[in-house]
Design a protein around this nucleic acid. Structure first.
Length: 477
RNA sequence: CGGGGCGUAGCGCAGUUUGGUUAGCGCGCACGGUUUGGGUCCGUGAGGCCGUCGGUUCAAAUCCGACCGCCCCGACCA
């Protein structure tokens, strides 16, 4: 049917590039590695942003804004941090026609400038905790870019908190990881594996990094959000000190956590099919589209009138759009809205108007099987129920797919085979060097050491040593 | 940064090997009609510095050189 789109099993990568553009999510910009987020894609991002922001506020955080430019010297204050980020910095050397005394870095992340400010703001334990988030753009000079998944400039939120005790900061790190998990599961309908990053995958400057890892439809992993326990590393680098109850100087304990426009790519690659996007109702810019159908002009008038009434009836309970363009046929519109991933389509024709019905077509169930004839009466209650059903259904589908592509492996050979198509779960007690070798030989990395552990101990899949933890291996975006 | 592919109308491409009238095709776009319950059909029309610069030639989309850009595969990353 859809020769408009390369089938996923033919070339998943090509499918992704095509659908992102054809569904009007984004377009390539004249600047290498950068993208233009189009209104439809941006609305999706706004939905993501609003749902996260609500959760941040609910957990006591407030928003603020820190500058785009960071003095170069700031980055250099934390050794691991500068080492990790220097290869991908964009640096401003001139301003107003003059060479700058000190180059300014375009922020790749804001730990340093926020650390600097926190040092000024924190004097006493009474000033803590400091729980600030910012919505911003950041720039990382990537060698290889892909729309949403890795662009030179991207949008994200970065939370930065400072605490009086290690325990409190640690608790915050895990709390925000669970906020991300909750968002991924309940809003994006994406099952994720929350876990700890291995030494070699952790954030530059962190003590411990946590992540939620999702599986895309090609079996590859996408790191969808991260939460870092920074210990006192940045507090020491930027002198974030306070007097405790006993009038003793202490360094603060800090955290940072972020989720980016990459999440849009995660939604696309988790739910999309050969007809196009499949958006979870909770995030979809348009949840319900009404497609009126008519043959003659008299029909057009009555059908459109009924369609407008239908929109009126639904607009308080969902995000509804009436496609009343008369330049396209009904069939064309069906395909068009399917490509855009609208969860529910209501087809309203002369027969329906006469019978007081409407044909509902679920995006997650293509073709006839997804069609049900609904009564126009009570639609304002049946439609939200149907949307919730769809939300659940696509989550369950993604969950079933992921779980059937995760395998417990006992040998390195098995691991090699499994990561070709999904994730391998294995006992692990290896070193950074062991991990590097596995990556070289299999292209797979430790995606995370899941928080959810089986307990007990086993034999490390690579070294054969006794291991107390299992790790998830997979190829990643 | 290494390997591969590609730059011709808004999009997708043919033409380039073997230089030669006015550079084509499909989709899209505009207008008219027809159609509309799964991407209607017909007609008319608009739209091009053939990626850029330089060279060879009577003559270059076509041959040569340099540069720029994009996509894919690797090394680095949310």
């Amino acid at each position: 049917m859809a020769d408009f789109l390369t089938p996923q099993n033919e070339d998943f990568s090509k499918w992704y590039n095509e659908i992102v553009q054809k569904a009007d999510l984004a377009d390539y910009s004249p600047v290498r590695g950068c993208m233009v987020i189009k209104p439809y894609g941006y609305t999706l991002w706004e939905r993501i942003r609003d749902e996260l922001d609500r959760r941040f506020k609910a957990t006591g955080h407030v928003n603020a804004y820190f500058p785009l430019f960071i003095p170069m010297s700031f980055l250099e204050k934390e050794a691991e941090h500068v080492e990790g980020f220097s290869p991908e910095l964009a640096v401003v050397t001139h301003g107003g026609g003059e060479e700058l005394a000190e180059p300014l870095v375009v922020r790749p992340t804001s730990e340093t400038i926020i650390g600097y400010m926190y040092a000024k703001w924190v004097q006493s334990y009474r000033d803590l905790p400091l729980l600030i988030n910012q919505w911003a753009n950041v720039v990382r000079w990537e060698l290889r870019t892909r729309l949403f998944l890795r662009t030179t400039e991207f949008l994200w939120q970065e939370g930065h908190t400072a605490h009086a005790t290690q325990a409190e900061a640690f608790e915050e790190t895990l709390r925000m990881l669970s906020v991300y998990t909750d968002f991924a599961v309940n809003e994006a309908a994406i099952p994720v594996l929350p876990g700890r990053k291995s030494e070699s995958e952790k954030f530059a400057g962190a003590v411990t990094s946590y992540t939620i890892e999702a599986m895309m439809k090609d079996g590859k992993a996408l790191q969808s959000a991260t939460s870092h326990f920074l210990g006192q590393n940045f507090a020491k680098a930027f002198d974030i000190k306070f007097l405790d109850e006993n009038n003793a100087q202490q360094f603060a304990w800090t955290t940072s956590w972020g989720l980016s426009t990459r999440m849009v790519g995660a939604v696309v690659m988790t739910h999309g099919d050969d007809q196009g996007l499949v958006l979870p109702p909770r995030l979809a810019p348009v949840q319900v589209v009404i497609v009126p159908i008519w043959r003659k002009d008299e029909e057009r008038a009555t059908v459109l009138e009924a369609a407008r009434a239908l929109r009126q009836c639904l607009q308080d309970v969902c995000r509804v759009h009436l496609d009343d363009r008369d330049t396209f046929s009904a069939g064309w519109k069906f395909n068009d809205w399917e490509m855009r991933g609208v969860p529910l389509r209501l087809e309203l024709g002369p027969r329906d108007v006469a019978n007081g019905t409407v044909m509902a077509a679920r995006r997650d169930q293509p073709g006839r099987e997804g069609k049900t004839l609904l009564s126009l009466v009570d639609l304002e209650t049946t439609v939200p129920v149907l949307l919730a059903t769809i939300q659940q259904a696509i989550y369950q589908k993604a969950l079933a797919f992921r779980d059937s592509h995760i395998h417990d492996v006992r040998s390195y050979d098995e691991l090699k085979e499994v990561v070709e198509t999904g994730f391998a779960r294995a006992w692990w007690a290896g070193s950074r060097e062991d991990e590097a070798r596995i990556k070289e030989e299999t292209k797979a990395t430790i995606r995370c050491i899941p928080l959810d552990q089986p307990g007990g101990s086993g034999t490390c899949v690579f070294t054969g040593r006794e291991a107390s933890e299992v790790a998830i291996f997979g190829r990643a975006y």
